[in-house]
């Protein structure tokens, strides 16, 4: 997967992961991929819901030892 932009959201708490993801996605073009790395346990459901509602596609997500990595394709 080609990652066009990466966002480090580790260590920050709600609502920052979603707020920062929104800012980051504004900086890429439609169809490009944003990678978000977060440690907030709520970010799993937060970012999944946010993608669904904002018209972006959550292409992939994985969890490794409390670190969540999201791959979001801009809609």
């Amino acid at each position: 997967m080609n990652i066009d932009k990466s966002l480090d959201a580790k260590g920050i708490a709600c609502p920052m992961p979603v707020v920062k993801t929104k800012k980051a996605i504004e900086e890429i073009e439609s169809g490009q991929i944003l990678e978000v790395v977060a440690t907030d346990a709520g970010s799993k459901s937060d970012l999944t819901a946010w993608c669904k509602s904002s018209g972006h596609e959550l292409v992939d997500m994985n969890e490794d030892d409390g670190v969540f990595t999201f791959y979001i394709k801009k809609g």
Binding site: P15, V18, T21, K22, W50, S53, S54
Partner: peptide, 11 residues
């Protein structure tokens, strides 16, 4: 304010 900022991120 957390809800407000979250909602703003939802556009």
């Amino acid at each position: 304010y957390i809800i407000a900022n979250g909602a703003a991120a939802y556009d």
